[in-house]
Nucleic acid binder design. Structure first.
Length: 799
RNA sequence: GCCUCUGUAGCAGAAUCGGUAUAUGCGGCGGGCUCAGAACCCGCGACGGACAAAGUCCAUAGUUGUGGGUUCGAUCCCCACCAGAGGCACCA
């Protein structure tokens, strides 16, 4: 009973589109549902099966919501700026605009063939000037509010891609794009002050429905720690050296101090330091180390004592030596630490290597063997002696520091500011101007969009400059402030810029007066359900939350958090259980599946292959099984009778209940398994009522919309199944009249009995005892306890 | 090193509260249909040993990575361990 998917799939796709079934209606009186998927980067390779899995979940929810009477916004767009396109442009000497247009066309065609119910009228493209106009606008707002700054620092630089990378894009010391080793390069870069929003990004997690592991990953990434800043001083010099510590209670255990090699106070007191040459040599050695080497050397601490300078502990006046070491970093805290080797493992290792004293101030461990970081009685600690609780001693010490004016409580975050520029062509131009008189001047809002000039040569500059720097017509301009000659910033924004606010553009994609109409934002936002990959948790998700919080603070959007609910799909692995990759040759092209088995089969398969959030290997045989299931669905048309089939009634109502709740819980695999079970029952019965079949195809419709729509038409259904009301179940009909219940003796399963669903305890117990397989085990024993859990179990305890 | 998660049949994967472990699909086995079939239909099993098998017996037995514990009863809760995945990684 094969159905001709090649004919019916395009047919219904066209009919749905002609009937505009997926058009979201602004300000509709119906309840709204905004379902969002991470818009694709339109690569030349076309869609990956991973895209299908990522999109089908929200697709299923969106289709179900429409049937439930919601006004649904389910949009799609293209995140099209980025390096792969530009690299391909350089390689083929084709303009990135042309490549992007071709790829977007390809992706759109593919997405349509899978039957996704996107509202195509709202499609966006981040490289469209009508879109990046507003990316630049938001950037200028950030600038206006002091959240954009320039700093000269060591940056992660990829020599292959010739770009500066954010920490997030160079994890593990490898370039995220080409995987070559990243080197450290001194450079002036633009930053967005995301750290100003660390607390809001942390607190905001309390108000959203994200899976715990995603929340946790963001919390760890933000890395909040509470502690204290304490002022140490140099012996004999009037100078404060501020340190940050999470354990101010261990101040009496300080036996040395460590500063980051590049700490500026070292240069300030260079004339007092007698081994400056050695320090310079150590600094150079550190700068040469790659990220990889640094992580490999975690266990083996290196460092150098500063000769000629010593530090004074402010709580006891003790003079301690100062070291420099690259285990202390300039980028966290104050770039200097107090070292308490007895109670910090890193300090302990350093002290051991350099023969420094270790003074115990908390009892409980064996500091000969390792640092002790647990709780215990304070000793050798003056006024803290005798306290046994970490919290109390930290509080008492902090109080003391404030009283003496030598320190105060403080908070630190691990998160770094966001390096926000790239030296490449295919990105949003940064709308800033460098004027010799006025300094940095923003491009006036009315001059936006600042267009990317049409150029022929996209080769990145050897000097680490953007190709835009070679276009005098672009670079040379007049200063909007003083009218004098000035130069434009030639760097462009990073890949993450356009995706940091795209969900706002969907609510009003054609607006040319604002990024979106405030009323439409109020109507549609927040996104009700956003699905995407785990790999974006500490990047796109965090970045877009940051921008949205900012836009909320300046009154541009209606809620602080952009996404009410977030979910994440598990990866689809190759048939060999390994990550899909061209080099392994285990890549599955979703369009091949559509061609061979149909879009419905592909959709059902990716939803059925396992727990949605877990990784699962591709299995061609299992794809065929899904196709077989759909063929059996099509075959039910031959079993239809007018009236309901009584014996199937309970199974149908159970299925409505289970499929409805399973979809909400993202248990798509069990929803489909339930329908597979039901169809087995139907074939066993050899018949099905017309209305029962309609309920069945409604439940399947979000997963397999084409075949179900076709069956609905054959049954003479009115309108489209796609927007027919979602079936309801009768709770009373979801329970069987007679239930089978397990009977245990001493907790061991010994048999089962069939009893009426609402029978009394006495009846149940009697039935249990009467069962021959059970009676055997109770013969000659004394019954001490009878347990009856209605609907669950009978248990007889005997001796 | 720290944090999080996972471990169920040959494979993938089910199992609201602690209550008949293994739904569903793949693969396997048996049968039907057929000239034939990897197509379709029907059925079966999966967890020790014995008998050719139904069944019976060992056996009031065992069974969810391993070993303990709590409980009338544990895939589920607690403790310890083993294995795998992911995240962070000298964050003071």
């Amino acid at each position: 009973m094969n159905y001709d998917f090649k004919k019916i799939e395009p047919k219904w796709q066209k009919k749905w589109e002609d009937a505009q079934l997926f058009k979201a209606e602004d300000f509709s009186k119906k309840p709204k549902f905004y379902g969002l998927v991470e818009f694709p980067y339109p690569s030349g390779a076309g869609m990956h099966v991973g895209h299908i899995k990522a999109y089908t979940s929200i697709e299923v929810i969106s289709r179900k919501r429409r049937m439930q009477g919601y006004n649904v916004l389910f949009p799609i767009g293209f995140d099209a700026f980025g390096l792969p396109t530009e690299n391909y442009a350089v390689k083929t000497n084709t303009h990135p605009r042309i490549i992007t247009d071709v790829n977007i066309k390809k992706f759109s065609d593919q997405l349509r063939k899978v039957g996704f119910s996107f509202d195509w009228d709202r499609t966006i493209d981040t490289t469209d000037e009508n879109y990046y106009h507003w990316t630049q606008w938001i950037f200028l707002k950030l600038y206006e509010h002091g959240l954009v700054f320039r700093d000269k620092t060591l940056v992660n630089y990829c020599p292959h891609c010739k770009v500066v990378l954010a920490n997030e894009d160079s994890q593990g010391g490898k370039c995220d794009i080409c995987h070559s080793d990243v080197i450290q390069l001194p450079k002036v870069v633009w930053y967005l002050r995301i750290t100003d929003y660390a607390e809001k990004l942390l607190q905001g997690l309390n108000d959203v429905d994200y899976p715990e592991n995603i929340k946790l990953q963001e919390v760890n990434w933000i890395g909040k720690s509470t502690g204290a800043f304490v002022d140490f001083s140099f012996n004999g010099v009037d100078e404060k050296i501020e340190i940050y510590t999470t354990r101010p209670d261990t101040l009496f255990g300080v036996t040395f101090m460590v500063m980051a090699p590049e700490h500026p106070l070292i240069d300030k007191y260079a004339d007092r330091i007698t081994n400056m040459d050695a320090i310079q040599a150590y600094r150079e050695e550190c700068a040469r180390k790659t990220e990889f080497e640094r992580t490999q050397l975690v266990k083996d601490k290196t460092g150098l004592k500063i000769e000629g300078l010593e530090a004074v502990n402010p709580v006891n006046g003790k003079v301690v030596p100062i070291f420099i070491s690259d285990y202390v970093m300039m980028g966290y805290g104050t770039g200097a630490i107090m070292a308490v080797p007895a109670h910090d493992q890193r300090d302990w290792e350093f002290a051991h290597k350099f023969g420094i004293d270790i003074i115990e101030v908390i009892k409980g461990g064996d500091i000969e063997k390792e640092a002790y970081t647990g709780d215990g009685e304070m000793v050798n600690s003056g006024f803290l002696n005798g306290l046994t609780n970490k919290k109390d001693s930290i509080a008492k010490m902090t109080e003391y520091l404030v009283e003496k004016g030598i320190g105060h409580a403080g908070i630190q975050y691990k998160m770094k500011d966001w390096a926000f520029n790239r030296q490449r062509y295919w990105g949003e131009p940064i709308p800033l101007i460098h004027c010799p008189n006025c300094g940095v001047v923003p491009v006036p809002y009315e001059e936006l969009p600042l267009r990317l000039p049409e150029i022929q040569d996209f080769e990145p500059g050897e000097d680490g400059k953007s190709p835009l720097a070679r276009i005098p017509e672009f670079v040379n301009c007049t200063c909007p402030k003083c009218g004098g000659p000035a130069e434009r910033e030639t760097d462009t924004m990073p890949q993450w810029a356009g995706s940091s606010w795209y969900f706002l553009r969907y609510v009003d994609p054609h607006n040319n007066k604002a990024f979106a109409d405030p009323e439409k934002i109020k109507y549609w936002m927040p996104v009700d359900w956003y699905n995407g990959g785990m790999e974006h948790v500490t990047r796109h998700l965090l970045y877009s939350r940051f921008w949205h919080h900012f836009l909320y603070d300046i009154g541009e959007v209606s809620t602080p958090e952009p996404y009410a609910k977030r979910s994440a799909q598990g990866m689809i692995l190759g048939a060999d259980g390994e990550k899909m990759s061209k080099s392994r040759g285990n890549v599955v092209d979703p369009l091949d599946i559509v061609k061979e088995y149909g879009a419905d089969t592909l959709r059902v398969y990716v939803m059925f292959m396992g727990d949605y959030g877990s990784a699962a290997p591709w299995n061609d045989k299992s794809v065929k099984g899904c196709r077989r299931f759909l063929d059996r669905v099509g075959g039910m048309i031959d079993l239809v009778q007018d009236g309901d089939v009584e014996e199937l009634e309970t199974a149908v109502h159970k299925a409505i209940k289970k499929v409805s709740s399973d979809i909400e819980d993202q248990k798509f695999n069990t929803a489909i398994a339930c329908l597979m079970g039901l169809i087995n029952d139907i074939y066993k019965a050899g018949k099905i009522g017309r209305n029962q079949l309609i309920s069945f195809i409604k439940l399947l419709s979000p997963f397999a919309p084409h075949i179900t729509e076709e069956i609905y038409a054959e049954l003479g259904g009115e309108g489209f199944l796609t927007v027919a009301p979602w079936p309801e179940y009768d709770e009373a009909k979801t329970v069987d009249a007679m239930i089978e219940i397990g009977v245990q003796v001493n907790g061991k399963f010994r048999g089962k009995v069939s009893i009426p669903k609402d029978c009394s305890k006495e009846e149940a117990l009697a039935a249990g005892k009467a069962a021959p397989s059970v009676a055997r085990f109770m013969e000659g024993k004394k019954l001490v306890k009878e347990i009856y859990v209605p609907g669950k179990i009978l248990n007889f305890v005997v001796k």
